[in-house]
Structures are given as C-alpha cells and as structure tokens.
Amino acid sequence: MNNKHVAVIGGGIAGMEAASVLARQGLKVTLIEKQANTGGKLNDWDHLFPDFSSPDELVNSLANKTKDSGVNTVCNTEISRIERNGKRFELRANQDVRFFADAVLVASGFNVFDATIKEEYGYGLFGNVITSVDFEKRMKKHGQLHTIQGTAPKRVAIIHCVGSRDAKVGNTYCSKVCCITGIKQAIEISEMLPDCEVFCFYMDLRLYGSKFDSLYLQAQKRHKIQFIRGRLSEAAERADKSIQIKAEDTLQGRPLRMTVDMVILLVGMEPGVSTSQLIQKNQMTVDENGFLKSANMHCARNQSTQEGIFMTGTAICPMAVNETLENARSAATEIIHFFENRRP
C-alpha cells in the first residue's frame, strides 16, 4: 500500500486533515489548492462557534500536520479534469500540469450563497446590509463593527436562512451552521457594543450541536438578544442610510416593521462551482441539492458513485468545522480500506 498515491483536491480544512492522516499511514499524498494558501474559507473567519476559538490556530496546526507528515502541497493550481486510466487517475489542471493518482479525494468545499439574488434584502444596494461572511472579514480586519456612515450601530438585525430552506431561490435544504453562527455573532456584537440591541429573525432555531443550546440560552439571558420568529419580507434604505425592515412576527401573528442601523444576512452554503465542473467531465453524480452524491448515505458516506474517487467535507453537504474534520478522518479511513481490499 505504501507506494499508492492519493490526490486530494482542495486545501481547505477537510483536505488538509484527510491528507495528513493518509500521509501518516505511509501513503504518498498530493494536496492541490487553487488559491495561494491552504486553509480555505477559514482564512477569512474571525472566531469559531461555539467556543469562540481562533480559526488561525486551527489552520496553522493543520498546516504543520500536513507539512510534518510529508504531504506534497501544490497551491495556485485548479484541477479541471479527472480521467480514469485503468486503475489509475490522471488529473489535469488548467495549465499543462498533470497529476497521477491511485485514488482521488474531492474536498472542494462549498460556495457562499450570493445574497444579491434575494434582492428584497438589499445586499449590494444598501451599504448597511452585509452578510455573515462580511461580518467575519470585517471583524478580523478591523476588530470592530461600523455602519457605512462610520458610526457604531445601535440596532442590528440578524436574518437567518438567507438562501437556505427557500424554495424560491431553489435551495430547499438547511445549511445547518447559520443558526449557531447568528447566535455567536449576536453575542460578539453585544459584547463589543453593550448598548446595541440585537434582533435575530428566524424560522426555526436548529441548534443541533453540543453546547449550541447553552449558547442560545446565554444569548437570551445574559446578552438580551431578542429572537423573533418570522422571515424577513423586505428591507428598504431610509434617507439616513438606516434600514427599515418588514417581517411577520409569526408567534404574535402580526406584521412587524422596524428600523435598524445594520442588517446581517446569514448566508447559506451552496454546492461549489469547481465541484460542478468536475462532475460534468467525470460523471460523478450529485444529489437533489446539487452536492456530491455518496455511494451509500450510511455506510459509504465518503465514497462517490465512481470507484476510486472519494469525497469529504462540505462537498458532500453543509457541515460545521468539527464535523468536517471528523468527516475528513473517516474519508481517510475509507481510502485506506479501499487499498487494503483491492487485490493487486
């Protein structure tokens, strides 16, 4: 098994974790990342839920692990094609770069939902409407939150389920991580700006993970975050750049209007574009949501419908950071079993 070669597509946390586990088992591993650095979307992130830990530490430790285990990391390279050649695979990048592998692990991640599609929320039109991703980027860069006028916001509305569980935009699935992200960001705002009122507009609160519910209680009790069950119908910018929002408070059964200084849209996860390009050329199938389809939902979660091609992380479905890492380790195990069971 030691001379087997695995190509891992995508140098986010899923790819890094899986690559390092495989390399420690003695396999030859090439980690291919299209951007200049590994770490993926976590590079933009400020804090992780539910423990407010730093993603930089995680990314750094993963980078060290891949390096120490002997993973060959290739950045600035985007794979456009996977071709089967007998039992081996040939991977082609945009330039004249080729890789050869005995197994392929697709860890191409997700795309963030483009909030301009929900034009009624005014993202891209109104300066004080931002996404949860913008929030993390700003916090990481400036360590503070400002309205476009340069003042500290006094009222912030956080909108759940933007681009998730919304048949009108074509995404009926739940992105899973937004509820807890919203609660985390609400607490961060409240801690940073104690006078700021924060409202969360939700459909359901899906707090599935360990410690998520205690964070929710903490948000209500200690930080006085107000949770309103109702989906936002529309937002409008007023002359002073504040945002008027309209929603329905479905617990009170009443239409609701309020003016806030800032709106944060909790954008969901969508299947990655690079994933779809890979699919077209390799007949890898996708599920009803457009994510990569597993050979078996339960016992072969990391196996694609093509033998020898595996997948991990948010290329399969929306996942939180800790789940992604677990999933990456399970993918590595499946690949090792694949080589062990295959007769030469």
Binding site: E119, E120, L125, F126, E234, A236, E237
Partner: peptide, 9 residues
C-alpha cells in the same frame, strides 16, 4: 417593486 429595491432606487 418592494422586493426589487434596485427599481425603487
């Protein structure tokens, strides 16, 4: 039109 604030602007 309220769902398309670009038109209102």
């Amino acid at each position: 039109t309220h769902l398309t604030p670009g038109i209102i602007a």
